[in-house]
Simulated assay, not measured.
Amino acid sequence: MCQMNAKEKEVIYLTAVIELLRSMVNHELMAVVGEDSHKNVQFKTMTHQQLFFIALVDFLSQTDAKAPVPPIPYLGALRAISNTPSFDVNNSVAGLKAAVDAFTGWLQQEIAVETWLSSIDIQANIRITRYLLLKITGNLSKHNTLRSVGVAEELQHLLDKIGHSVELYQAMLIQEDIYEKFHDDVCAYHASTIAEFINGLYWGIQNYLKPEYVRSYTPEGNESPRYNFLYPEGLKHPYAKTCYWNLMNQVRSGPIFEPFTVTEHLKGNY
């Protein structure tokens, strides 16, 4: 496959990112309830909550090395785009940059989680970044013990940092205790806040690309429902052109939820 330019890569990354964001924040998984700045998210079932965190760990992961664009974490791709945007008009990228910075900063913060590890009879005050906690939770949601040895190794390291040296098999045994605490307690508490961040990223992309959509959108006639998009200069690769069409249609439909702010009562712990 031929080399792509920066604009083509950006279009491909943004198309994939929006697909992931829509898989996390949608009416099938959740409802946003409450008034003004005191909203929260309610999942339809515990299974829907689990699906939310599985999709989230994919979003926090790196793109496939065999994809037609360089491998990079999706959030890292958004950061790179917000720093060197191809479609910025009158600083339309500002909201996206702010949303990326806010979520990245929140993920990088280290928290303390008091956890009873009944399988090995240890009470541990685990110190962990929110990013790593969410990665561990998502991976444990997807895989059983024998498919999550890498998670066990991470738990070994976390326990070793606070003075608890355990064998690998012991770290494998505590995964159920860890999942119960991380998923059912910490992640459930932060789910509404994470949904607010994800929705903010989506709106950041929407507002960034809206001027490009206005430039590109071309209806075929006053009474015809058909329309075209005028490709921007420099967009030549056929895969990128298909992604561009999909991307403009994503902008045309817009985010599923309006912007919302979660109550501060769900932001004080962990």
Rank of each mutant, 00 (worst) to 15 (best):
S141Q: 11
K9Y: 02
T63I: 11
Q170T: 08
N222R: 14
G221N: 09
R130C: 01
E114W: 08
L60N: 05
Y239A: 09
T261K: 11
K236G: 02
M30R: 08
A31P: 03
V186D: 03
S82Y: 06
L117V: 09
V113A: 10
Y239V: 12
N125G: 06
H143Q: 06
E167C: 08
Q156D: 06
K142I: 04
N40C: 12
S224C: 12
L107R: 06
M24P: 02
Y208S: 07
M30F: 02
V41D: 03
V69G: 01
A102M: 05
W106D: 07
Q108H: 10
Q42L: 15
V251W: 06
T218P: 04
A191R: 12
K236L: 14
T84K: 15
S118Q: 15
K267R: 14
M30G: 06
I178A: 11
A80R: 15
K44N: 09
T115N: 06
D185C: 12
K135H: 10
L133Y: 02
Y74D: 02
G95M: 05
N5A: 03
S224M: 10
I81K: 06
R215W: 06
E153S: 12
V25L: 01
R226L: 13
S82C: 08
W245D: 04
I256Q: 11
S86T: 10
N90E: 15
R147D: 13
E223L: 14
P70C: 08
G34N: 04
L96Q: 03
S253F: 14
T193G: 02
Y169S: 14
E154F: 03
D36K: 15
V32N: 00
M248A: 01
A55F: 15
L159Q: 09
F59A: 09
E28V: 10
S82H: 06
G234M: 08
G150C: 03
A240C: 03
L78R: 04
N26W: 07
L29W: 03
S118I: 14
F53N: 05
H164V: 13
L134W: 07
A31F: 01
S141W: 01
Q109P: 00
N83A: 13
M4Y: 06
Q108P: 01
I205A: 00
W203M: 03
A16P: 00
S192D: 05
D184S: 15
V11I: 14
L209D: 05
M1Q: 11
A171H: 03
S224F: 07
A16I: 09
L209R: 07
R215C: 08
V41E: 05
D121A: 14
H143N: 11
F53Q: 06
L158D: 07
R127V: 13
L247A: 02
T104Y: 09
L20K: 15
G95C: 02
T263L: 03
L155Y: 08
W106C: 00
F197V: 00
T45W: 05
R215S: 12
A31S: 11
S86I: 08
S165W: 10
L201I: 01
K135E: 11
V25R: 00
S119G: 10
T63D: 04
G76S: 12
G200S: 07
Y213R: 11
F103I: 10
D64L: 11
H157I: 13
S192C: 06
T145S: 13
L146M: 13
I54S: 05
R252I: 00
E180M: 11
